[in-house]
C-alpha cells in the first residue's frame, strides 16, 4: 500500500478549478517534487496533502485513511502526528527563540523536550543559534529552524512548499543537503517547487499545469 494515494482529486473555488482530476501515488521513503508555474495548483495540492484543506471531489488516502472525508478535528490530529510542514516564508513565531520554535511543535504533539529540540537544531547546524530570536537569524538559518521544527516529531511525510524560494545559493545547497540526508534516513519527502534545479534533486517530478497533472519525470540520475 502506498503511503499517499490521490485518486481523481479536484478542488473547486467558485468558477475556478484549482485542481482538476489529479491522481498521484507516493511510496514510503520516496522523494517527489511537484513542479509547475504560478497558479498551476501546487500549493492547493500541498494544502490538501497537508490536511489544511479538503478536496472537493476524489479520495486522498494517507496510510490508507481517506483524509478527504475526515473532520477538522481529525485532520488536526493527522497534521500533528504524521506530517512535517516546511514553508517558503518559514513562519516562525517571532517572539520565541529558535529552540522554542522547535519545542512548540513538540508541545502540541506530546511533551516538549529541550534536549531533543537542541539535537534537532544541531542536525541542521544551528545548535549555537538556539537562543536567538528569528529576527536575529538569516533567511537560511530561519529555514533550517523550520526544517528542525518539521522533523522533531518524526513525521511519516515531510511537505515542503518552495523551501528554497527565499534563499541564496549557499543556503539552498545547505537545505538540499539536509533533504538528501533525510531521504537517506527513509523520510518521505514531497517538495513543491518551481525551480528545476531543486526538482532535479528528487527521485520523481510531477508537473502541474492549470490544475492538471501533465507530466511525470523519473530522475534517472538520482543518487543518494
Amino acid at each position: 500500500m502506498s503511503l499517499l494515494e490521490i485518486k481523481n482529486v479536484s478542488k473547486i473555488y467558485g468558477p475556478l478549478k484549482a485542481l482538476d482530476n489529479v491522481s498521484l501515488k507516493v511510496e514510503n521513503g520516496e522523494w517527489v517534487a511537484i513542479m509547475g508555474p504560478s497558479g498551476s495548483g501546487k500549493s492547493t495540492m500541498m494544502n490538501i496533502i497537508g490536511c489544511m484543506d479538503k478536496a472537493s471531489t476524489g479520495e486522498v488516502l494517507l496510510d490508507g485513511v481517506d483524509i478527504a472525508k475526515e473532520s477538522d478535528k481529525k485532520l488536526t490530529a493527522i497534521r500533528r502526528d504524521k506530517i512535517g510542514l516546511i514553508f517558503q516564508q518559514f513562519h516562525l513565531v517571532n517572539y520565541l527563540t529558535a529552540v522554542e520554535n522547535v519545542m512548540v511543535s513538540q508541545y502540541y504533539h506530546s511533551m516538549p523536550d529541550e534536549k531533543e529540540a537542541l539535537e534537532a537544531l544541531e542536525r541542521v547546524g544551528l545548535k549555537d543559534r538556539a537562543k536567538h530570536l528569528p529576527s536575529q537569524l538569516s533567511g537560511g538559518e530561519q529555514q533550517r529552524v523550520c526544517i528542525a521544527r518539521a522533523l522533531i516529531n518524526h513525521p511519516e511525510i515531510v511537505l515542503a512548499d518552495e523551501p528554497t524560494g527565499n534563499l541564496d545559493e549557499d543556503n539552498e545547497n545547505i537545505v538540499l543537503d539536509i533533504f538528501k540526508q533525510l531521504h537517506r534516513e527513509g523520510t518521505t519527502l514531497i517538495v513543491v517547487t518551481h525551480d528545476p534545479e531543486v526538482a532535479e534533486e528528487a527521485q520523481r517530478t510531477v508537473v502541474l499545469e492549470h490544475g492538471r497533472l501533465v507530466k511525470e519525470i523519473i530522475n534517472e540520475n538520482f543518487t543518494d
Binding site: M52, A77, R79, Q89, H91, V93, N94, V104, Y108
Partner: peptide, 16 residues
C-alpha cells in the same frame, strides 16, 4: 494570524 495559522498547522487545537 500567521502565527495562529502556523500553530493550527502544526497541530494545535482551537481551545489551546
Amino acid at each position: 494570524s500567521n502565527e495562529i495559522g502556523l500553530l493550527k498547522a502544526i497541530g494545535a487545537r482551537d481551545y489551546r
